[in-house]
Design a protein around this nucleic acid. Structure first.
Lengths: 343, 343
DNA sequence: GTGAAAGCGCTAACAC
DNA sequence: GTGTTAGCGCTTTCAC
């Protein structure tokens, strides 16, 4: 019973030797492939167990699959994404694949996609990716790709979006019905995030615009720049807007995180919500639901987004060619930061 | 100029051919290894660029390194961790390694460690891992390992912790000095998280205990179970504790997330902070700092934790053998949820 | 149903 | 300083 004293990993050869089989047979057992007798399978499995054998992912990656799927995350500080992640995990883990997440925050989505391709990742779910259409198509050639929060069509990849046109419209209508006129929207105002309608940012801004027109408030339309939909953006924009002589009576923040920045700015300036200012966010994060905050927001149903994204990826990986696309209906959650205007 | 129409990745052979060099030379250039003339290096680099060559990580993983470091994350919903992550990224990215994160939330830390080892990850930083000492030692044999939030010593791995004894003591002293006696602590009460002092949970509970004794409040010591340090735990515990006939006047939550659950429970029960209840958290998250919440908390300096963790990992990967250990001094951030007791 | 053997894209001796 | 070559641990034809 020879055994190395250095903790060398058992290889497929070790298993084959112990099970008195060929490496090919072991490989078949490993992949639940056809062509192994029950008796052989049992022997091999026993040997794998005894040796505590685990296949080497790099070696598998050279010929076959790595059993790894990648998630690209745009903003770790946004607590909206973990719910999507949780739903994806629940679908993927039972398939005994490992999920690896990388964030594009300090590099670029393009670099992260490439890094994942370099690592032979089997499929990728990109959450709200900041990257051009053409690069997405390129990426989809290398591995199955599913996008969330992108309003784009392509036979190359699948998408799952929330109906941002409806979501933004619901917010504006809610505010207008309460009697607000000067409703400012907080979102990126320049670059492709502001102009290309495949981006959620541009989409919500556009819908805000249209809804204001429809409510007869076209003259009050104003978007203040929040280039990255972050807390810091919201804080800065909030300080600016709320320091004006003639303040808006309502603010529609593109994201809950942005809204939190506004909450902080308002707090520091002694402006009470909803007495002096109505505020709505987007994402319905748990933080916003806390009693002392009670932020009005839009629920995107992250659980459904994640579940669908995982289903699409898995079916693509199993060979589906036709592109899929899903649109989820959002839901307005009116809480206590929105009310009738004071003055 | 032959070129495949299928988008096959360029390999080291393609580069070698184009540069009129050997694959060994290309490999050397790739790794900045010794033994290549400037002229050769230039030719090879030009060829790599022209072919848009990217090394195949799986192939590298079979002989050398994968240029990938892994982060194990315990709780995506806890906004305390992203700051550590950010600091790590800032250290690691300039070394042109890729970071891959996996969460242990839906599996186990052990499984995630194994999955990373399977993938030939070069080094691992485990954030507040829930796993036994012996398994950590096992894991450290397979790849350099750095732990945060574990008060354990081992020559096998490095650790970086915040001084939880001091942090918890500061909270209790702060509350006691305000005049509180019935100070309840929210933390896990059973299992190794409650008993093994290498865990942050047990450590804080223990320090709470000692500090209560030292403040002459030993008779008021009580810990209410929050098995996972989560929002839901805090909410449940909060509802229970605050519904009692004789409520505590102060609650020390083991984590800001737990404190948020208490905030929600108190809100629903019509209990005002700090008038009817003082509340302190731990982690000093951005959410807690929001004006309407203004949660008193303990700052652990996540940026320093992350920076040190990355430095330690990098130096281990460069061959350091001697174990390192750092302890960071926390800081109490008193805000508006703590005040003198009402009754 | 099973095994032998080629080869995936790299790295690292080792020779020159 | 440069090239040849033997694997790393798997998967996958192709024989038998």
């Amino acid at each position: 019973m020879p055994s190395d004293q250095t903790t060398r990993r058992a290889t497929i050869h070790d298993v084959a030797r112990l099970a008195q089989a060929s490496t090919a047979a072991v490989s078949r057992v490993l992949r639940d492939a056809y062509g192994v007798s029950d008796e052989m399978a049992a022997r091999v499995k026993a040997a794998m167990k005894e040796l505590d054998y685990r296949p080497h992912a790099s070696a598998r990656g050279m010929r076959g699959k790595t059993y790894t799927i990648g998630i690209i995350h745009p903003d770790l500080r946004n607590t909206f994404f973990p719910d999507i992640f949780a739903a994806i995990s629940q679908m993927v883990l039972p398939t005994s694949r490992q999920m690896m997440m990388a964030t594009s925050e300090w590099t670029s989505t393009e670099d992260v996609l490439a890094a994942m391709h370099d690592r032979s990742i089997e499929g990728i779910i990109a959450l709200a990716p900041h990257i051009s259409e053409s690069k997405l198509v390129e990426a989809a050639k290398r591995a199955p790709l599913v996008l969330t929060h992108r309003h784009s069509y392509s036979p190359a990849y699948d998408t799952i979006v929330s109906d941002d046109d409806l979501g933004a419209e619901m917010v504006v209508r809610h505010l207008a019905e309460l009697g607000h006129k000067r409703i400012v929207h907080l979102a990126p105002t320049s670059g492709r995030l502001a102009t290309q309608l495949s981006f959620v940012t541009a989409r919500r801004s556009n819908a805000y615009h249209d809804a204001m027109e429809r409510a007869g408030l076209g003259g009050f339309t104003e978007i203040v720049d929040c280039p990255h939909y972050t807390y810091e953006d919201g804080y800065r924009a909030g300080r600016e807007v709320l320091s004006r002589d003639k303040r808006p009576t309502a603010i529609f923040a593109g994201t809950d995180n942005v809204a939190f920045g506004v909450i902080q700015a308002a707090y520091e300036l002694g402006i009470e919500l909803p007495r002096h200012l109505s505020l709505a966010g987007y994402d319905n994060t748990q933080t916003g639901s806390l009693g002392p905050l009670s932020l009005t927001s839009v629920d995107q149903n992250p659980h459904e987004i994640g579940t669908l994204a995982a289903e699409m990826l898995l079916s693509r990986m199993q060979g589906r060619q036709a592109s899929q696309r899903a649109k989820i209906t959002p839901r307005l959650v009116a809480r206590k930061t929105t009310a009738e205007p004071f003055d």
